[in-house]
Design a protein around this nucleic acid. Sequence first.
DNA 1: CTGCCGATGTATCGTCTCGATACATCGATC
DNA 2: GATCGATGTATCGAGACGATACATCGGCAG
Lengths: 205, 205
Amino acid sequence: MLEFAILGLLHQSPMHGYELRKQLAQVLGGLRSISYGSLYPALKRLHAAGYVTTDEPDPRAPLPADAPPLTGRRGKVVYTITAEGKERFHELVGQAGPETYDDDGLFGVRLAFFRHTAADVRLRILEGRRRTVERQREGLRASLSRTRERLDRYTLELQRHGLESVDREVRWLAELIDRELTDGQGRRDDGATPGDPPAQAPPGP
Amino acid sequence: MLEFAILGLLHQSPMHGYELRKQLAQVLGGLRSISYGSLYPALKRLHAAGYVTTDEPDPRAPLPADAPPLTGRRGKVVYTITAEGKERFHELVGQAGPETYDDDGLFGVRLAFFRHTAADVRLRILEGRRRTVERQREGLRASLSRTRERLDRYTLELQRHGLESVDREVRWLAELIDRELTDGQGRRDDGATPGDPPAQAPPGP
DNA sequence: CTGCCGATGTATCGTCTCGATACATCGATC
DNA sequence: GATCGATGTATCGAGACGATACATCGGCAG
């Protein structure tokens, strides 16, 4: 999930880790921000995989005993996406399987980068997500009606509120899908495959 | 969080790990169930701390080469809360600081065990939670009005939906608080401190 | 009667994420 | 000129998760 989000942000412009984190928090909707303990290891993995490059390549080793209080020499590091990274991002952005909508976090990130996503993929993700959340809702409903009697007031309230939230999400998704279909031919602004023929993608009304 | 939930469940009756997991999933509201990779280590920690005991104390060592296919001899393990465990639970159930409402998961568990919680503590947790979620809401609102122009349709939708959810949670909490105040003198069914004098707890209507 | 399947049940492994923390630099305000 | 908050990089330990292995038991299909 982080991999996708980082590549997506760096796809727009190179950035520091710090800036990356802020943008990430904003894209993720204010709550659910990402910690450095996740971010830097993720960047390290992306670097190792060759998807991003850094400037300031490592001026840390060649100073064994300079001056005790100023050992750091910690430079700012700008991360830039590579050609392989862009390729990887386009590969990821084309996915529309269960992995893209079964996980809350990943679905959110996918949605945040929908403008880089083809219209048919967008639709499949939204519909997959709706199915997933609908299943959750039915499970919740069943469990609630099964155990309504034996639950105390507070647990009941908790479950009622949870059920309502899930229900609201289903309706929200339905509205997004509707809009997707009504607005007709969506387009990605990706720059990749610009001469896409207008056939084959939309299933029609 | 798991510590609290497990002690709370075992406080009602001894259980297998498997049963514990099912009850936990139910109490947590259907979604957000707990995995074995969390449950068993947590039980191990509780056992090490002396808060729970197990039967079947370890019949695994004394069979070095019995029969290759049936080496397991894996017995069912029933976990029972100890006196120290009950004491620990009562200690935890009395807490009402930020740690009880800043984290979604722990707040949910606390709410699920509200019937073991004193009325004044219940109120403080609910009000703390409301403050926390209200702060989230204001942050979200500010961020949204600051960046509304530069966001694309989907990110905007995501944030709008997030904001609405948070807003609904605030109203839900307000309703719970209201009911808490209206219903007047709540009581814990705890069995601890049974001779509680009726003064001092409720702030009055 | 037998063989298989799904529920019950215990347990660990590698991977990831988080919160806390340390360290460092810079601009502004006092 | 000193302190304070924002910017910035990085690691550590605790713990949660998904996957997986292993084991037992009841039922029911062939």
